[in-house]
Amino acid sequence: MSLLTVDQIVSGYGDMEVLHGVDLRVDPGEILTIIGPNGAGKSTLMKTIFGILTPTAGAIAFQDQDITGLSPDRVVRLGLAYVPQVENVFPSMTVRENLEMGAFVLRGDLRERISRVTELFPVLSKRWKTHVGNMSGGERQMVAMGRALMLDPQLLMLDEPSAALAPNLAATVFERIEAINESGLSILIVEQNAKDSLRLSDRGCVLAAGLKCFEDTGPNILANEDIGRLYLGGE
């Protein structure tokens, strides 16, 4: 049984159709990376899965439950968490408050969850009271991922987690992603510069011009010369 199934999704912004019937499947415990050029519809797909955009056709199911057209505040309760590419933190709030917001839909004590997140991102525990707006890009990305993990989701959706990060910071982020995955969490990553991401992915697929045009295991995609030339900056 797959965790997430996307079936012939058509979606976009207003009259502008970006996705023209995309299929996608995420299995439990795997990392799936979607690569593709700018404007291919990668972020649109993420937003549609999460209910920020409403598809005009097709269906999305999470754990065999139909979530097509469900609003984000409903989707988040089912065990999906989403880290947008940009503006993925609350800048005027502190690190701790950002994490608390991640668990907004939960009641009760959050201390255990917070300590679990800070085990993954130790750098955060020293900066509890820092306003996230004053933090660096790498630290913000940690806050953003930490916030998403507060809900203890079953599927973590990351939109370009390494975008705008220095190479060493990007490496740290991917190392964290791998650690998160080892705890059993499924991860769906969208990446433009996707070599690092594909390297740790079970599977990858290529999205171009609003259609999925290729799918294979991570290593196979990395080895594929055509894809390398077209989408991974060539050799």
């Binding site: 999460f50 920020i52 609003s71 984000p72 505040d73 988040v76 309760r77 989403y82 947008p84 503006e87 993925n88 933190v89 609350f90 800048p91 005027s92 709030m93 917001m101 991640g102 907004f104 839909v105 916030r147 809900l151």
Partner: peptide, 11 residues
């Protein structure tokens, strides 16, 4: 601060 992210967190 960030209305779209607020929605994403379930607010």
């Amino acid at each position: 601060d960030n209305p779209s992210l607020a929605q994403v967190t379930g607010i």
